[in-house]
Write a protein that binds this DNA or RNA. Sequence first.
DNA 1: AAGGCGGGGTG
DNA 2: CACCCAGCCTT
Length: 308
Amino acid sequence: MIDAIRADLLQWFTNDARDLPWRRTRDPYAIMVAEVMLQQTQVDRVIPKYQAFLAAFPTIEALAAAPTAEVIRLWAGLGYNRRAVNLQRAAQAIVTRHGGRVPDSVAALRALPGIGPYTAGAIACFAFEQDVAFLDTNIRRVVRRLCVGPDHAAAATEAELLAHAEALIPPGQGWVWNQAIMELGALICTATNPACWRCPLRRHCRAYAAAVAADTALAETMAAPALKRVAEPRPAEPFVGSRRWYRGRIIAALRALPADTALPLSELGRQVRPDFTADHAEWLQQLVRDLARDGLLVITEQGVRLPA
DNA sequence: AAGGCGGGGTG
DNA sequence: CACCCAGCCTT
């Protein structure tokens, strides 16, 4: 039973997997860069940034020693800029505390800044080929549908899903298995409109069986109920004009500056919002203070700039 | 347990 | 417009 699941998925992966750059290496540093970039960011957007980043910082020592401003510049377009700062801090911690070798234990990885449960497991598996289970949005969704049931009926805890994920791993093949199950979630078992008709695990899948039994449209049973939350939906804030949006604009303005050039706050204010007046000074100060606390900029006499 | 954190692509 | 995306950290 479980052997058939494993065989069917691995067969599919062999035939249909995408050729992604981080699947062609076991360099732990490169894997770490890829996995951090892939946090909440789609594969297609990461690929070019990953290549450029490794070209600029080919080794963990190079990243650790680089000006933080350069790291933040190379991060442009990826979003969640704190990841860039944390990635460099992780590299520095590895150089100073682990002799420049990316640790291979989940616990040691987990202690690094910006490395959470998913990323620690992914590095242990994809760089060091350990049979460790972890959940990302893809694996979580596939495991839930496969082992638990349709999205609307899935009252499974994180620990239960993790146990399922672990039980599925073919011993000695954790690397390819975790790649394969993530790939299935990305290409077939998608959040909305899963392509069950071409899913290699269709005949093993609880959610699929439930859909067939109910004789309903697959996409309807699988995904639609999950979208209609029982909870009251938060008032959707427009992204443009939000605090997050202005933070991004500030960092973008500083990225465009020549190295070691500081931007006076008044000038920064005019660049990030056309209607900037003295009344906005307090608001801008607060944003800048918070960005400084995140390590994304420094405040000087002359104004603000990216960290050296 | 909940919110904040970018930005771009898609239906 | 809404939702989604190889999550993590702080409160």
